[in-house]
């Protein structure tokens, strides 16, 4: 009598696996692209390379520029890097989704973006406040910390590897807070190197 309850063809292990898979697919944004993480890392390394050149290289003619102008350059560099990284993530994730017949805009993806939005938006405003108050040495740390919190919290709505990436950002953010001279280095490691590392991990695990 009990066997009527099971699906005709399935063993209980298969049925349980099918149930769990459905639960995961409905709650997690699974088409987040690891490749976009790799590219974001490359963009960030390029950007920090440029910033390093402006600040520390004796070859550049930045002594001639006013502090205001250097700041404007950095802001522009930051904006361009951010826009490039976000659009790459959007385009590649959309592509990955249609390949796996998963719609991009789903309750899961909306939940992911919502949970990421609060820390990241707040981080942005806080960094502007730091700029306004000329507390420049804390800006890299703040960026890493707010972004790290966002990643850790939104990991439950997407691929789980994001959580560990979040923890590395938090650690680097704290180091940058106590050692502001290493701010740019921590930034380059967090947004650059570790995005490359985790992006590759995600890519090999989910896209090959």
């Amino acid at each position: 009598m009990y066997f009527k309850v099971l699906l005709k063809m399935k063993k209980p292990e298969d049925e349980l696996a099918a149930i769990k898979s459905m639960m995961e697919r409905s709650t997690r944004f699974l088409s987040l692209s690891g490749l976009s993480g790799i590219l974001a890392g490359i963009y960030a390394l390029g950007a920090s390379g440029m910033a390093w050149y402006w600040f520390y290289s004796p070859n550049s003619n930045t002594e001639l520029l006013s502090f205001r102008e250097i700041l404007n350059r950095l802001l522009l560099l930051g904006m361009v890097t951010l826009i490039a990284a976000v659009s790459t993530a959007y385009l590649l994730s959309k592509k990955k989704g249609t390949a796996a017949t998963q719609p991009f805009w789903s309750p899961a993806s909306k939940r992911f973006l919502q949970s990421l939005f609060l820390p990241v938006a707040l981080g942005g405003f806080f960094c502007f406040a730091l700029l306004h108050e000329s507390a420049f040495e804390l800006i890299p740390s703040a960026m890493l910390l707010f972004y790290g919190i966002g990643l850790v919290q939104s990991a439950q709505f997407t691929l789980g590897e994001i959580k560990n990436l979040g923890f590395t950002q938090l650690l680097l953010g704290l180091i940058a807070a106590f050692f502001p001279d290493f701010g740019l280095l921590c930034w380059a490691l967090g947004f650059g190197v570790f995005h490359l590392v985790y992006g590759s991990l995600m890519y090999y695990r989910h896209e090959r």
């Binding site: 459905m22 719609p103 789903s106």
Partner: peptide, 25 residues
Amino acid sequence: HVVRLRIMSILMVNESYDFTSLKLL
């Protein structure tokens, strides 16, 4: 039925789910 089992699975872990999203998934 497979579809009914899947619907139940989805609703078990989401407070609510709309018709169109169910259809797509």
